[in-house]
Nucleic acid binder design. Structure first.
Length: 167
DNA sequence: ATCTAACAAGTGG
DNA sequence: CCACTTGTTAGAT
């Protein structure tokens, strides 16, 4: 297994977004941490023409970006022969991945979806460990009272992903 | 192997 | 607004 490892980079005014592909499947994604809301307006400086790069750019632009070839369950599986994440986490990530485009869900809803209605706290926990931010739309997960919740790389990204970069 | 603290939430007082 | 609940994880013992 394991064929080629490919590293992509989308350069933006907020920093570089790095994506790692294994055999053409998205294996990992990381965004630069932003402590607060940057004063610089967001824009993409440079990006590749491959599907993954396009997906990232589209997601950040609020376009109808249809999830292309994520197959994330395949993508997440074994990187070192080891599964990425625990069973529970994978269930959570899968549930998140199934959120219809343009919609949002609450942590509680997701907890119900995986059959553990009281585990909303754990769900949030799993969100924070999501290895594929942006690809797995954990930014569409909000708290029940409408609060925005949190985001691994900083709330600025989450807001951007939710509202789209209409600027 | 067991225990404890921490967490991106929720419900109730 | 504050405090108690709740399930899972990571790190220490």
């Amino acid at each position: 297994m394991s064929g080629k490892l490919q590293r992509l980079k989308v350069e933006t005014t907020w920093g570089d977004i790095k994506v790692e592909l294994i055999d053409g499947k998205v294996a990992r994604c990381s965004l630069p941490f932003l402590a607060g809301q940057p004063e610089t307006p967001f824009s993409v400086k440079a990006s590749g023409t491959d599907a993954a790069s396009k997906f990232v750019v589209a997601a950040l632009s609020g376009k109808p970006a249809k999830g292309p070839t994520l197959l994330f369950s395949e993508a997440l599986a074994k990187e070192n022969g080891k599964l990425e994440g625990t069973t529970f986490q994978q269930q959570v990530w899968q549930a998140i991945a199934e959120i219809p485009p343009g919609k949002t869900k609450t942590y509680g809803e997701l907890a119900q979806a995986i059959g553990r209605p009281r585990a909303y706290r754990a769900v949030a926990n799993a969100c924070g460990k999501n290895p594929l931010p942006v690809f797995i739309p954990c930014h569409r997960v909000l708290a029940a009272n409408g609060n925005i919740g949190g985001f691994t790389a900083g709330l600025a990204w989450k807001r951007l992903l939710l509202t789209g970069n209409r600027a």
